[in-house]
Design a protein around this nucleic acid. Structure first.
Lengths: 338, 338
DNA sequence: TCGCGAATTGACAGCGCTGTCATTTGTGTC
DNA sequence: GACACAAATGACAGCGCTGTCAATTCGCGA
């Protein structure tokens, strides 16, 4: 039969309420008692019943991760974030629920309300690109549900979660190309209204400007974060009279598309063309030549965002926007200008 | 304030217990009463409190999806299954929890026990490759937790879930190559102990045998379901004195690797070499030329598996192993033998 | 119309925990 | 050593629902 809190209490010769206090890390329990209770819990392999805790305590010990499975950047990126969030939740004995939501669909808010009404999550983790969707944020605030974002586009006060300095990272990778002697550097942009696209474009521009290079508009082509859009963007670039010597794609999928298109045109990477991406998804390492890119620690970011959230949920702390570092993964797809 | 079952009861002029009966679709409620209660629920937008239901009813309304994030076939495949499972759970107002487990790790069973003890899932969905891990199945049976599998390797009685006739599908795609005149057809095998690898290899052999072609062992090379392993396998094949005219890779990632390697060797697909894969992941459509492959309806399979499971959980039905059809997606990577 | 078994409905306790508040124990002060 | 006050602990009700079983109503044949 199941071990209940009452059983632990009896074993430790204290009242159930005291065991509850220990379980919830509350103050006003003597060290001696706390130890005794913890020992009893351990010995009996006590597992609190989440539903009972939730019912009596008016909290669910549940974190929901919201994502947009319709136009998400890349499913492997989300999967990594998911793993990170899950890890953080596990550590704090919270459970996690995932929730696909279609931002462009009419019932977005209704589905969000249903989630809240049905499951009462103690907090919510938002992933790109739904970190900045105003009606969503408004609704969460109204409902009093704390939320943390992975890579939010805005940095207003009250925004908690985790971010990476993507603009800085984009600038760094373009500077890497500049250092290799490239001057005609193209950029394949991501979906227009994603924060990621804006930052990466800004970083690209910043690097060029700092190097005193005027931006050539034909070298900035629109993509959509997909492999196919990378292929198409590259075809446009390769059709140019004066081709670029390097391409910085706003994510790895598109970079792979660029490399693929290069193959079509008989352009050798990196000999004739340097290509770099952003994110460092598993594919980047598997491509040949291996892709130079920026490592975005998605898993770690998911975990950190969830940890920020849990801090707010548990300790009523104000929470903060943590920042993670990036690293340039220089591999074989970039070389000195021909 | 929250609408409770009691409030609905009052509005419908019945006892709380009767509302509960309606909520749980129990028998012995007159049609008239049922309608009245349902109307009241609707009008008041009543949402049962899952924790209260769980606590009182000794069930959790929770389905856990187990997966191996260490050596999983492909993360987009899992993501699709996850979406399908989620959809089925939503329809039946169950919640879903995801659970990464490392099959090769020592604490596998301990983590499984923790999952059961902590969350009491009413059922579990197993995804490849952990559909047939004996200690896991044993433990689930001991704990009395019903489980459904997506593509289980074995078909013993009591195995419920969903399968696709992968051998038949593999045979079909190889027959497609044969119909194009190919006789020297290579096969890149997946991870050895995965059911998927065995079936696909068996289908390959079956097709060759039926066509009266003796298997050439050098044309069957080992891969590991990853892009990189596809590249390496292809390099071995291209180093052969007598190259194959077609390659059937056991999944799309490896097929993409084969196409990539073909680029390295200046081999034109499909002119010089036909390539086909298996799964129809998004990448397949994005490759150039687009990849001929077998469509494995992962999302639908996840949904069906979950539906089978829920049937068992809710109606105590014995459950069955559903079967889904496959379809050959003939695209541009296969052509008549040169 | 009456009686009887089946169908329908309801009363009530309790699932395992926590919030509230009362009670007990400890600590420092003069 | 007595007192004031804070820290530690416990008693008890109740979170929102369902299981059990008793009570009531219904349908139908005699």
């Amino acid at each position: 039969m199941r071990v209940r809190l009452e059983d632990v209490a009896r074993a430790a010769s204290v009242s159930p309420k005291t065991v509850s206090r220990v379980l919830n890390d509350e103050a006003n329990v003597s060290d001696d008692t706390r130890q005794r209770v913890l020992a009893a819990m351990q010995a009996m392999d006590y597992r609190p019943h989440p539903s009972a805790r939730s019912l009596a305590g008016h909290r669910s010990f549940l974190v929901a991760m919201l994502y947009d499975n319709n136009d998400n950047p890349a499913s492997t990126y989300l999967a990594e974030i998911q793993d990170g969030v899950l890890e953080a939740c596990d550590e704090h004995r919270y459970s996690m629920m995932v929730r696909p939501l279609r931002m462009r669909s009419g019932d977005f808010i209704r589905r969000l309300d249903a989630l809240i009404a049905d499951h009462h999550p103690d907090g919510v983790v938002l992933t790109p690109p739904i970190t900045d969707y105003a009606p969503l944020l408004k609704r969460l605030r109204e409902a009093g549900v704390p939320h943390a974002s992975v890579s939010p586009a805005h940095r207003g006060k009250g925004i908690i979660g985790v971010r990476m300095d993507e603009q800085q990272a984009a600038r760094a990778i373009v500077e890497h190309l500049l250092a290799l002697g490239h001057r005609r550097i193209a950029h394949v942009v991501g979906i227009a209204d994603h924060g990621a696209s804006r930052w990466r474009l800004a970083g690209y521009r910043e690097a060029l400007a700092a190097a005193g290079i005027a931006e050539d508009p034909v070298l900035v082509v629109q993509g959509a974060f997909t492999f196919g859009s990378g292929v198409e963007a590259a075809r446009k670039l390769f059709a140019l009279k004066k081709r670029p010597t390097a391409v910085f794609a706003a994510n790895d999928d598109m970079a792979a598309g660029v490399m693929w298109a290069a193959g079509e045109y008989g352009i050798k990477v990196p000999h004739d063309l340097s290509v770099c991406g952003f994110d460092d998804i598993p594919l980047a390492r598997q491509l040949w030549p291996a892709l130079t890119t920026v490592r975005q620690p998605a898993r770690e970011m998911g975990k950190l965002a969830a940890l920020q959230l849990l801090e707010v949920v548990r300790d009523r702390s104000p929470g903060r926007l943590a920042q993670v570092g990036f690293s340039l993964e220089v591999r074989d797809s970039t070389a000195r200008v021909p």
